[in-house]
Amino acid sequence: MRILIVEDEHNLSQQLVRHMTDTGLVVDAAQDGEEGLYYGREYDYDAAVIDLGLPKLNGIDLIKKLRAEGHGFPVLILTAREHWEDKVAGLEAGADDYLTKPFHMEELQARLNALIRRAAGYSSPLLTANGLSLDTGKKEVRLDSRLVELTAFEYKVLEYLMLNPNRVISKTELTDHMYDQDYDRDSNVIEVFVGRLRKKLAREDEAVLIRTVRGQGYRFTTDT
């Protein structure tokens, strides 16, 4: 999962990056609205956390611009402004949720997860398809009630594929959402992870959950 954080307060920004990286997310942090807009345009994010009082370009205008340019990733407003006028303006500009400072990191994380799931069309923290269930809270995967042991990266790949069901995901896109910008894109690590995942998720009825679309990427199918 790749998350964009736009927060001008350096300490808070660092704290957010550290916390989110610890939970296995790929995080980009922008210090002002313009930098946030640049990142938003440049990368395809799974969600963004945006402060309202930002230098150069304020949070509301940033959200409006991103939305106007067709970027639909969920946005959570993180603001010190208590006023409903600001919250409503943010939500109307295109944000999906808001959290006022001071806040608990766990609450932010829970809200962010809920937004990402909601954007993928799941309303509960449990993603299920074809007997496969992925608990985004506990970070557990079960196949026909049997617990499947996955490494952190395997889990991330599967979670991303399940959050984008029936869509072809290119290796580049998968890489972008798994790793930081400076990752070597030519590596065949993704292929290795997908290969291992397929083995671990092999079912007796031989239904294939992750399909390879030749020359394009992978697709998680829910219609086997």
Binding site: L12, H19, A80, T100, P102, H104
Partner: peptide, 11 residues
Amino acid sequence: LKTPLAVVGNE
């Protein structure tokens, strides 16, 4: 006031 409070709280 709130941003430092958030930082301290989270820390």
